[in-house]
């Protein structure tokens, strides 16, 4: 059961990451890219967390805390940058 769960989760999360990457690549504006990067980071949170859950260890939980805050700081600063760039 654990192997099956690992395979299913890996497939689902990989496809999600690829979709986000596609939007990151295509995104016509910086705002679209920020959304896609946010999405990618959230997928990473999911992947790290899923790995911890499948293998039943808690060593990567602090990574989750850092990632969840990093996404916020990252997208907010990028958006501020985007607004300033557009005003000039």
């Amino acid at each position: 059961m654990t192997t099956l769960l690992a395979v299913v989760l890996t497939v689902l999360l990989s496809i999600t990451a690829l979709l986000a990457l596609a939007r990151l690549y295509r995104g016509p504006s910086l705002v679209d890219r920020v959304i896609a990067a946010d999405m990618l980071l959230a997928t990473m949170v999911g992947a790290v967390g899923a790995e911890a859950a499948v293998n039943r260890h808690a060593t990567t939980l602090p990574v989750l805390v850092v990632l969840s805050l990093l996404g916020f700081v990252g997208s907010v600063s990028l958006v501020r940058f985007a607004v300033r760039e557009q005003q000039q």
């Binding site: 059961m1 689902l12 496809i15 979709l19 939007r23 999405m39 959230a42 859950a53």
Partner: peptide, 29 residues
Amino acid sequence: GAGSLVAGALLSLAAGVGVLRFPDALSRM
């Protein structure tokens, strides 16, 4: 736990499809 892991991954996948497919930045949000 396994069920909610898979459900969460499925929802993330649907979100990924939406981010790629929706027509403008606001709907992608």
